[in-house]
Amino acid sequence: RHRTTFSPVQLEQLESAFGRNQYPDIWARESLARDTGLSEARIQVWFQNRRAKQRK
Rank of each mutant, 00 (worst) to 15 (best):
P24L: 08
S16V: 09
D35E: 15
R20G: 06
E15P: 00
D25S: 11
A28L: 11
V9Q: 13
Q48V: 12
R55D: 09
R34D: 07
R3V: 10
A33E: 04
S16F: 08
W27Y: 11
Q48R: 12
W27S: 15
S31E: 08
L11G: 06
A33W: 02
E40R: 06
R42Q: 13
T36R: 01
Q13K: 07
A41T: 09
E12L: 11
R42M: 12
Q10P: 03
S31G: 06
N49D: 10
L32P: 01
R3T: 15
W46L: 01
R51T: 02
E30W: 12
A52G: 12
R50Q: 09
S31M: 06
S31A: 09
T4C: 13
K56L: 08
Q10C: 04
T4Q: 09
L11W: 06
R29K: 05
S16Q: 14
D35I: 14
V9L: 12
P8A: 14
D35Q: 08
A28N: 03
F47C: 02
E30L: 13
W46N: 01
Q44W: 06
R55E: 05
I43D: 01
N21V: 06
R42S: 15
Q13V: 14
F6A: 06
D25R: 10
W46G: 02
L32C: 01
Y23L: 04
T5D: 12
Y23Q: 06
S31W: 03
E40T: 14
I43T: 02
T5H: 12
L14D: 00
D35K: 15
F47R: 01
R42E: 15
R42V: 15
R29Q: 11
S16R: 14
R29M: 12
S7Q: 03
F6P: 13
K56W: 05
D25N: 09
N21P: 01
H2R: 07
W27A: 15
G37W: 01
P8V: 11
Q44N: 14
V9A: 14
Y23K: 08
T4N: 10
N21Q: 14
L32I: 12
E30M: 07
L14R: 01
R1W: 03
I26A: 15
I26N: 06
K56P: 07
K56A: 13
L38P: 01
G37V: 01
N49T: 11
R34F: 03
E40G: 08
K53H: 10
R29P: 00
Q13H: 08
A28W: 05
P8R: 13
L32R: 00
R51N: 03
Q48Y: 07
Q10R: 04
P8Q: 11
N49M: 07
K53P: 07
I26K: 15
I43Q: 00
R20C: 13
S7P: 01
E40A: 12
F18W: 04
G37R: 07
R42Y: 07
T5F: 07
S16W: 12
W46S: 02
G19E: 11
K53A: 12
Q10T: 06
R42F: 07
S39C: 15
S16K: 15
P8E: 10
V45C: 11
A28V: 13
Q10W: 03
R42D: 15
G19F: 09
N21L: 02
S7V: 03
A28E: 11
V45Q: 14
A33Y: 01
Q48K: 15
Q13G: 04
H2W: 02
L38A: 10
A52M: 12
E12F: 05
E15Q: 04
R55P: 14
P8N: 11
R50P: 00
Q22S: 09
F6M: 07
Q10S: 04
Q44D: 11
S16M: 13
A52R: 10
H2C: 07
S7C: 03
G19V: 13
G19I: 04
K56C: 06
G37N: 04
W46H: 01
R34C: 03
G37C: 05
T4I: 12
W27R: 15
F6I: 13
R34N: 09
E30N: 11
R3C: 14
Q44H: 06
W46F: 03
Y23D: 08
Q48H: 03
P8H: 11
S16H: 14
I26S: 11
N49H: 10
S39T: 09
D25G: 06
F6Q: 03
D35V: 11
Q10G: 03
R1K: 15
L32V: 03
E12S: 09
R55T: 09
A52F: 04
A33P: 01
S39E: 10
I43P: 00
N49Q: 13
Q22A: 10
I43R: 01
T5P: 06
R29V: 12
R42T: 15
E30K: 14
A28R: 05
G37M: 06
R1T: 11
D25T: 09
R20L: 09
Q54Y: 06
W46I: 03
P8S: 13
W27L: 15
K56N: 14
F18G: 01
Y23C: 07
I43N: 02
T4D: 15
E30F: 08
A28Q: 09
V45P: 01
I26Y: 12
R20F: 04
R34H: 04
R51F: 07
R20Y: 05
Q22H: 11
L14P: 04
Q10H: 05
P8Y: 07
K53C: 07
R34T: 08
L38K: 02
K53G: 12
Q10N: 04
A17M: 04
N21H: 03
R1L: 06
V9P: 08
Q22L: 03
S7K: 10
D25W: 02
L38R: 02
K53D: 15
T5G: 05
R1V: 09
D25Y: 02
R42C: 13
R3M: 08
S7G: 04
K53M: 08
G19C: 13
T36K: 01
F18D: 01
Q22C: 09
E30T: 13
R50A: 08
V9G: 13
E12W: 05
L14M: 03
K53Y: 09
E40F: 07
Q22F: 03
R55Q: 06
G37P: 02
P24V: 03
G37A: 03
Q22W: 06
A28F: 05
Q10L: 04
R51Q: 05
R55W: 15
L32N: 00
L11E: 11
W27K: 15
F18Y: 13
Q54I: 05
A52Q: 04
W27Q: 15
G37T: 02
R3G: 14
R3F: 15
E15D: 03
V9E: 10
V45S: 11
F47M: 05
Q48I: 11
Q22T: 07
Q22N: 08
F18T: 02
S7W: 02
R20V: 09
R34A: 09
R50E: 14
Q44F: 11
L11V: 10
Q48A: 15
E15Y: 03
I43A: 00
S7M: 06
R34G: 05
D35C: 06
R55G: 15
A28M: 13
D25V: 03
I26P: 07
A41F: 06
R50V: 01
L14F: 02
F47P: 00
S39V: 04
N21W: 06
R1M: 15
Y23W: 14
G19R: 14
T5A: 05
K56S: 02
Q13W: 09
L14W: 00
E15N: 02
R3I: 12
R55I: 15
D35A: 13
A17H: 15
R1I: 14
K53F: 10
H2T: 12
L38H: 03
K53V: 11
Y23F: 05
A52P: 02
K56R: 09
F6S: 04
F18I: 00
Y23N: 06
A33M: 05
N21C: 07
E15T: 05
Y23H: 14
T5M: 08
Q48W: 08
Y23A: 05
L11N: 06
F6R: 02
R51A: 02
